[in-house]
Design a protein around this nucleic acid. Structure first.
Lengths: 336, 336
DNA sequence: CTGAAAGCGCTTACAG
DNA sequence: CTGAAAGCGCTTACAG
């Protein structure tokens, strides 16, 4: 049994040239319809498998995209970036590319060593997941293939990046509460702790503004000190009917606190979170929350890569992808 | 700026042949030490990147291994198989291979369509993660490249598979309890529900036998009906000092039950689980448990693949990889 | 519509 | 130690 059938084998069997076989198999012009059918049939029968490598040699493309994850993010619970990688794989495959995962070791990141897949011409482009050092970004700028960043953006570098939209995520979920009849809505988070807490707060605020609901400062509750250490949440004297929490963990803590004070969630108070992480589903009730839209981000990054492959000069800059609201049991209609 | 430096470019610059450059860069015989150094220096200066594709063309190997995950397993919490894939990537890379992930769609699995990466000669071998249909296995048997299965084994097929060792995992963790002075040790799990509960039970039993500890049937507690639905755990009148639970979720439930009855864990009773999943760390105390040794499994599978690549006739059959015990706070020394 | 020639960037086997 | 020739399996550009 011959294990490697080539176009030439098909050509010889049919008494034509391999050029003709190539044209037929690729549906190119210059073969009669009749011959084309015959060739395709023979290929099928002989168990021909197209050899991507040879095509790659010819046009200098590997049709692989390197997906680089810094080692630091590698041990995490949930391994968020692996999910991103999986989505990327799917999106790239639709465009005829395959994603090759490479973990960037701490050592290589410090030594500013380019990913090996790049050095070996294994890939036509690089997608970097998560934050990496400024120096490494600079090094990547001198790389001869397109680079797209995900889930990370640095103001000072000229880079194409696909990141999640904290502002509109919070905006959407607050709109949802309002659509359920809520008018007294609080926010839980220290506005000076991180920029994402801030952005989420502003999204919440925009939703209130659009609905002409007055922002009540006594409803904005602190959840942590400026070092990020979580602190006990002080509830206001007059309770709102719903809370937007800056993340799921805090939402869970708030629910526990409310329960011990005799409030039921969602019957008495509705609570929503952000992130859709493990805290959203461990415990009762399940949290209505905002999930990072991994598929959308992956599709966007894949699309950018694809366009940059064909036109390396094209720039996209920073692009935000809205999260999507995940509906669970922690919200109910407001009672009037 | 010329973006693609080839061996020929280096050769021309130095006035030698590309054959010599190839030998020098690959540390092969037939170049003087002096010239070799000069060539390597020039390559460095000119920013030469080795073109794997060309080598691949020559020896008919892509140096890629396809890692196939059935779509079914793709939405899971924790995405266990993605972690496996990541470990595989690392292990393969050490051997000069890269892992290309391909999600096998439900449709392709039913239609018995081989993975596209195979049809396109993208990969030299296939590693399949998780259970797939018997028919698909049969189809894979006719594939012309090596196939290794992970985390799944079918008695009726002639396959190489790397799977986790339930028996010895339970054996190890029971030994650990005994080393902490425990002699009265219970097991929680319905022995007739699944084969892994059974295997874990037998590992627990072996540990008792080896230490000449009598198995006390009143210490073997049911946790679910035969459909797998968890039921309330009935504690024995006389309590053992420790419990081996067939998984972390059940261990967590048992701890809750013990707490409501006034027992403290681990001060009064020690409890261990199995799987090291999310239940092991959410809640207090953290569970001492058995983690599937993903790295070891990945290394083993990569090694098998590597050997099969060089000798396609070689067979390994079913190989078990022991889990490793993860030590947390749910076990204490027994008080005497 | 069909095909001979050249080439993608390497490596292998052989000759000098 | 050094290198000319051939070839891996395709595709492109061109000629007939």
């Amino acid at each position: 049994m011959k294990t490697n059938i080539t176009m030439r084998d098909i050509a010889e069997k049919l008494g034509v040239s391999s050029v003709t076989v190539s044209k037929a198999l690729n549906d190119k012009e210059g073969v009669s319809a009749e011959l084309k059918v015959k060739i395709k049939q023979a290929a099928e029968e002989m168990g021909y498998r197209f050899n991507t490598l040879a095509r790659s040699m010819k046009d200098g493309r590997s049709y692989n995209i390197g997906v680089v994850i810094p080692e630091r993010f590698t041990g995490m619970v949930q391994s968020f970036y692996l999910n991103v990688y999986q989505s990327l794989s799917k999106s790239l495959e639709k465009k005829g590319y395959y994603g090759i995962l490479q973990i960037l070791s701490l050592h290589d990141e410090k030594a500013l060593t380019p990913p090996r897949i790049y050095l070996e011409h294994k890939v036509d482009g690089l997608i970097i997941l998560g934050q990496i050092s400024k120096e490494y970004i600079d090094m990547l700028n001198s790389v001869h293939i397109p680079v797209v960043f995900m889930d990370f953006y640095d103001e000072h570098a000229n880079m194409d990046a696909v990141i999640t939209d904290n502002f509109y995520g919070a905006y959407d979920i607050t709109n949802y509460l309002i659509s359920k009849g809520h008018r007294q809505i609080g926010y839980v988070g220290n506005l000076y702790a991180t920029s994402s807490i801030q952005d989420r707060y502003l999204g919440y605020y925009k939703s209130l503004l659009e609905h002409r609901i007055q922002l009540n400062q006594t409803y904005v509750l602190n959840d942590r000190d400026e070092e990020g250490k979580l602190v006990d949440i002080n509830l206001p004297e007059q309770m709102p009917s719903a809370f937007v929490c800056n993340n799921d963990q805090v939402a869970r803590l708030l629910i526990n606190k409310l329960n011990t004070l005799g409030y039921r969630v969602p019957e008495d108070v509705s609570v929503v979170g952000f992130d859709n992480d493990v805290y959203a589903t461990i415990g009762s009730p399940g949290l209505t929350t905002v999930a990072v839209n991994v598929e959308e981000m992956a599709m966007t990054a894949a699309q950018f890569m694809y366009e940059k492959l064909n036109d390396p000069t094209i720039r996209f800059g920073r692009v935000l992808v809205k999260g999507k609201v995940i509906y669970r049991e922690s919200v109910s209609e407001v009672k009037n």
